[in-house]
Lab assay of single mutants.
Amino acid sequence: MDALKSAGRALIRSPSLAKQSWGGGGRHRKLPENWTDTRETLLEGMLFSLKYLGMTLVEQPKGEELSAAAIKRIVATAKASGKKLQKVTLKVSPRGIILTDNLTNQLIENVSIYRISYCTADKMHDKVFAYIAQSQHNQSLECHAFLCTKRKMAQAVTLTVAQAFKVAFEFWQVSKEEKEKRDKASQEGGDVLGARQDCTPPLKSLVATGNLLDLEETAKAPLSTVSANTTNMDEVPRPQALSGSSVVWELDDGLDEAFSRLAQSRTNPQVLDTGLTAQDMHYAQCLSPVDWDKPDSSGTEQDDLFSF
């Protein structure tokens, strides 16, 4: 819950932080000083300027060897085509990944977070970031790969997607708890209302004896509580940590079903599988986004697919 609360507080303090972009060759504004600060901008989305290598189908939802083989196929196909790589912007948030063309600003792909089953910074092609997700059109699994400016960037994108998945799962947990509370309150309110109706004398007997209905007592009954809980029953509950912020979080049926399955089948359902080692994760978390744009010590960066 700490990640969720800190993310909400950060967004309320400075929503404009989320509009910064990394990996864009110096076009961005001043960047936060450390990885923790940038992680807090996830709610509205972190932007990464990358190059799209392509996509291939895979048979399993996750796995280092599986993704490595898929990336190898994608890279080989991209090299064989001889075409310049498409420059894209990857927007990562707890909602998922939005992929747009840098030149036309046209939407290429919009992947809900619950469809993503794996992401990684490839070991062999260490400047490549990739994720595996279920197609929104059918049940097939797709591996999408992107060329980053350097290994640090690939690791940073991988960690960002993993963190977005974690925050999304926490949102789901909060929403589920809130819905259970509202359902319980609604049920209790309905029981109270039913009890009051059972003990209320029939209207005919009131008229016969000349008694008047006590409207004041009726007004004191917990009807307002019942209506408050039943009027918006169809509205999706939102985490309290975000009250007053500009973010509107809505959970669709697909996300609810997917996270429910994860909660039942996995020990740590909030953790998205990645190909990063503990050492890689520690190294990337210690980086400032400013470091992502620094040239690798191995030599001059080449803006070309064939540089790796």
Results as ranks from 00 to 15, higher is better:
2 D>Q: 09
3 A>T: 01
3 A>K: 07
4 L>A: 04
5 K>F: 05
5 K>D: 02
6 S>D: 11
6 S>R: 09
7 A>S: 12
8 G>S: 13
10 A>V: 13
10 A>R: 01
11 L>T: 11
12 I>G: 10
12 I>R: 15
12 I>N: 11
13 R>D: 12
13 R>I: 13
13 R>W: 14
14 S>C: 06
15 P>V: 00
16 S>H: 00
16 S>T: 01
17 L>I: 11
17 L>S: 14
17 L>G: 03
18 A>F: 06
18 A>M: 04
20 Q>V: 04
21 S>F: 02
21 S>L: 12
21 S>T: 05
24 G>F: 08
24 G>C: 11
24 G>E: 06
24 G>K: 07
25 G>R: 08
26 G>V: 06
26 G>W: 14
27 R>S: 12
29 R>E: 11
30 K>I: 14
30 K>Y: 10
30 K>C: 13
31 L>Q: 09
33 E>W: 14
35 W>F: 13
35 W>G: 09
36 T>H: 09
36 T>Q: 08
37 D>F: 02
37 D>Q: 14
37 D>E: 11
38 T>M: 11
38 T>Y: 12
39 R>S: 04
39 R>K: 04
40 E>I: 13
40 E>S: 06
40 E>A: 14
41 T>C: 13
41 T>L: 15
41 T>W: 10
46 M>C: 09
46 M>G: 04
47 L>Q: 02
48 F>L: 06
48 F>T: 11
49 S>I: 15
50 L>V: 14
50 L>S: 12
51 K>V: 08
51 K>Y: 14
52 Y>N: 02
53 L>M: 11
54 G>C: 13
54 G>R: 05
59 E>S: 06
59 E>R: 03
60 Q>S: 11
61 P>D: 00
61 P>C: 11
62 K>P: 07
63 G>C: 15
64 E>Y: 05
64 E>I: 02
65 E>Y: 15
65 E>L: 14
66 L>R: 15
68 A>F: 12
69 A>P: 02
69 A>V: 05
70 A>V: 15
70 A>Q: 13
73 R>P: 03
74 I>V: 15
75 V>D: 13
76 A>E: 10
77 T>R: 12
77 T>C: 03
77 T>L: 10
78 A>M: 06
81 S>L: 14
82 G>D: 13
83 K>P: 02
83 K>W: 06
83 K>Y: 05
84 K>G: 13
85 L>K: 08
85 L>W: 01
85 L>V: 12
86 Q>E: 09
86 Q>A: 01
87 K>C: 10
87 K>N: 08
88 V>C: 11
93 S>R: 11
93 S>H: 07
98 I>Q: 00
98 I>H: 07
100 T>G: 14
100 T>M: 14
101 D>C: 12
101 D>I: 01
102 N>K: 11
102 N>H: 11
103 L>N: 02
104 T>S: 15
105 N>D: 10
106 Q>F: 09
106 Q>M: 12
106 Q>R: 10
107 L>F: 13
109 E>L: 00
111 V>C: 11
112 S>E: 00
112 S>T: 13
112 S>C: 13
114 Y>P: 12
114 Y>E: 04
115 R>T: 09
115 R>L: 04
116 I>N: 06
116 I>W: 13
118 Y>Q: 01
118 Y>L: 02
119 C>P: 04
119 C>M: 00
120 T>N: 00
122 D>S: 10
122 D>K: 09
124 M>L: 12
124 M>F: 11
126 D>R: 07
128 V>H: 08
128 V>G: 14
130 A>K: 14
130 A>S: 06
130 A>V: 08
132 I>E: 10
132 I>Q: 09
133 A>F: 02
135 S>R: 15
135 S>N: 11
137 H>R: 15
138 N>K: 12
138 N>R: 15
139 Q>K: 12
139 Q>F: 08
139 Q>C: 15
140 S>T: 14
140 S>Y: 15
140 S>C: 15
141 L>R: 09
141 L>M: 06
142 E>M: 10
142 E>C: 06
143 C>K: 00
143 C>G: 15
144 H>K: 14
145 A>G: 14
147 L>Y: 12
148 C>M: 07
148 C>G: 15
149 T>R: 08
150 K>P: 01
150 K>N: 15
151 R>F: 06
152 K>N: 03
152 K>L: 02
153 M>Y: 06
154 A>Y: 00
156 A>Q: 01
156 A>L: 08
156 A>K: 11
157 V>Y: 01
157 V>F: 06
157 V>N: 10
158 T>R: 01
159 L>K: 12
159 L>F: 11
160 T>M: 09
160 T>F: 11
160 T>C: 12
160 T>K: 08
161 V>Q: 00
162 A>P: 00
162 A>N: 01
163 Q>T: 00
163 Q>K: 05
164 A>S: 15
165 F>P: 01
166 K>P: 03
166 K>A: 04
167 V>F: 10
168 A>H: 01
168 A>L: 05
170 E>I: 01
172 W>T: 01
175 S>A: 00
177 E>K: 11
179 K>Q: 15
179 K>Y: 13
180 E>I: 00
180 E>K: 07
180 E>G: 14
182 R>I: 07
182 R>A: 13
184 K>V: 08
184 K>P: 15
185 A>M: 13
185 A>N: 05
186 S>D: 03
186 S>P: 06
186 S>N: 07
186 S>L: 04
187 Q>V: 03
188 E>Q: 03
189 G>A: 01
189 G>H: 05
189 G>I: 08
189 G>M: 01
189 G>R: 05
189 G>K: 00
190 G>K: 10
191 D>F: 08
193 L>V: 05
193 L>Y: 08
193 L>K: 02
194 G>M: 03
194 G>Q: 02
194 G>D: 00
194 G>H: 05
195 A>R: 06
196 R>F: 03
197 Q>M: 08
197 Q>C: 01
199 C>H: 12
199 C>W: 06
200 T>Y: 06
200 T>C: 04
201 P>S: 04
201 P>D: 11
201 P>Y: 07
202 P>R: 00
202 P>W: 05
202 P>S: 12
202 P>G: 11
203 L>E: 06
203 L>V: 00
204 K>Q: 05
204 K>I: 15
204 K>L: 06
204 K>R: 09
205 S>Q: 08
205 S>E: 08
205 S>D: 07
205 S>A: 09
206 L>T: 08
208 A>E: 04
210 G>K: 00
210 G>M: 02
211 N>M: 15
212 L>C: 08
214 D>S: 12
214 D>M: 05
217 E>R: 14
217 E>I: 03
217 E>F: 11
217 E>K: 06
218 T>I: 04
220 K>A: 00
221 A>H: 00
221 A>N: 03
222 P>R: 10
222 P>D: 02
223 L>A: 00
223 L>N: 15
224 S>G: 02
224 S>D: 05
224 S>Q: 03
225 T>H: 09
226 V>W: 04
226 V>A: 12
228 A>L: 02
228 A>T: 14
228 A>I: 08
229 N>L: 13
230 T>Y: 07
231 T>D: 11
231 T>K: 14
231 T>I: 11
232 N>R: 09
232 N>S: 05
234 D>A: 13
234 D>R: 03
235 E>P: 05
236 V>A: 12
236 V>I: 08
237 P>V: 02
238 R>L: 14
239 P>F: 01
239 P>M: 09
241 A>R: 14
242 L>H: 04
246 S>I: 11
246 S>R: 08
248 V>H: 09
250 E>Q: 08
251 L>M: 07
254 G>C: 15
254 G>I: 01
255 L>R: 15
255 L>V: 08
256 D>L: 06
257 E>D: 04
257 E>S: 00
257 E>H: 10
259 F>C: 02
260 S>F: 02
261 R>T: 02
262 L>Q: 06
263 A>F: 14
264 Q>F: 05
264 Q>E: 10
265 S>W: 06
266 R>D: 00
267 T>H: 06
267 T>E: 08
267 T>W: 13
269 P>I: 01
269 P>E: 02
270 Q>T: 02
271 V>E: 03
272 L>F: 00
272 L>G: 06
273 D>Q: 08
274 T>C: 02
274 T>D: 04
275 G>W: 06
276 L>N: 04
277 T>F: 06
278 A>R: 06
279 Q>P: 07
279 Q>R: 03
283 Y>V: 03
284 A>I: 01
284 A>Q: 00
287 L>M: 11
287 L>E: 07
289 P>C: 02
289 P>E: 07
294 K>S: 10
297 S>I: 09
298 S>V: 07
298 S>D: 02
299 G>T: 03
299 G>C: 07
300 T>A: 10
303 D>V: 07
303 D>S: 10
304 D>V: 15
305 L>W: 03
305 L>Q: 08
305 L>I: 15
306 F>P: 01
306 F>I: 05
307 S>D: 06
